[in-house]
C-alpha cells in the first residue's frame, strides 16, 4: 500500500514538473528587460524556497533530537533522520540555486558573481550545511547524532547574522519579489501562474526525495540497532 501511494505521488510529481516546464518555457510571457534569460527565475527562486524550507526541517529535527534524546529514544531517532534528510536534500537544492544564480547573473548583471547580501548568505549557508554533512561523515559512533544536532543549531543561528552583516556591507541582488514593498509582486498573471506551478512542482519533487531519504535513514538506524542487539545477544 505504501509503495502504491509513493508511486502515485511520484507520477503526480513528474506530471506537475512537465506542466511547470511547459508553463515556464512556453506560456509565461517574455520579460521586458531581461527577455528569455528571465525564465531561469522559475527554477532559481522555487529551488531557493525549497532549500530554505528543508534547512528549517533540519533545524527542527536537530532541536527535536536534543529534546527527546533522554526521554523518547524512538522520537529522537525520527528527529535525527529528518535532520539528516533535510540537510542533505537542502544542500542539493541550495547547490541548484548557486548554479542557476550565476548563470542568470552573467546575462542580467554582466558578472557571474558578486559578494552581495543574499548571494553571500546563500553561499555561507551552503558551506555550513556541507560542514554539517562532513561532521556526520567524519564523526563515528553513537555520539555523532548529538554533535550533529548541536552543529545544526549553531549553523541555523549563524544565518541571520550572516545576512545582516552582508546587508550592511553591500547589496546588489534585486529587492525581494514578494513582500518587498508596494511595488513588489509579479504583475503578469501568466507569469505568476508559471511561477506558482513551478514552486508546487519543485516542492513536490523535493518532498518526494526528502521522504525517500528519510526512509533510507530510518532503515539504516533500524539495521544498526538490530546489529547492536545481535552483538549483545551473542
Amino acid at each position: 500500500m505504501k509503495k502504491i501511494i509513493i508511486s502515485l505521488y511520484a507520477v503526480a510529481t513528474i506530471v506537475l514538473m512537465v506542466w511547470g516546464f511547459y508553463q515556464a518555457i512556453y506560456v509565461a510571457p517574455e520579460e521586458q528587460t531581461m527577455h528569455e534569460v528571465q525564465r531561469i527565475f522559475y527554477y532559481h527562486v522555487p529551488s531557493a524556497m525549497v532549500a530554505f524550507l528543508f534547512f528549517a526541517v533540519s533545524l527542527i529535527g536537530s532541536i527535536g533530537f536534543l529534546g527527546f534524546r533522554r526521554s523518547r529514544a524512538v522520537w529522537a531517532q525520527i528527529s535525527d533522520a529528518w535532520a539528516l534528510a533535510g540537510a542533505e536534500v537542502g544542500v542539493v537544492f541550495c547547490t541548484i540555486v548557486l548554479i542557476t544564480g550565476p548563470l542568470w547573473g552573467r546575462r542580467a548583471w554582466g558578472i557571474w558573481w558578486t559578494w552581495d547580501a543574499r548571494l553571500t548568505t546563500t553561499l555561507v549557508l551552503w558551506l555550513i550545511y556541507v560542514s554539517y554533512l562532513l561532521l556526520r561523515r567524519f564523526a563515528a559512533g553513537p555520539q555523532v547524532q548529538t554533535l550533529a544536532a548541536v552543529l545544526g543549531i549553531f549553523g541555523a543561528l549563524d544565518v541571520p547574522i550572516v545576512y545582516m552583516s552582508n546587508r550592511w556591507w553591500r547589496t546588489q541582488h534585486p529587492a525581494p519579489v514578494f513582500g518587498g514593498g508596494p511595488d513588489s509582486g509579479i504583475k503578469d498573471p501568466a507569469m505568476l501562474a508559471a511561477f506558482g506551478w513551478n514552486v508546487l512542482a519543485w516542492l513536490a519533487w523535493g518532498v518526494l526525495i526528502l521522504v525517500l531519504r528519510y526512509y533510507v535513514e530510518r532503515q539504516q538506524q533500524k539495521i544498526a540497532e538490530h546489529e547492536a542487539q545481535e552483538a549483545l545477544n551473542a
Binding site: F138, A139, A140, V144
Partner: peptide, 22 residues
C-alpha cells in the same frame, strides 16, 4: 565537538570557519 571524530585535526577548521565568517 570535533575531538570525538576520527580526523579531529582536520575537522575543526572545516566546521569552525563557516560559523565564524560573519
Amino acid at each position: 565537538l570535533s575531538i570525538r571524530s576520527r580526523n579531529r585535526e582536520l575537522l575543526l577548521p572545516l566546521i569552525l570557519f563557516p560559523i565564524f565568517m560573519p
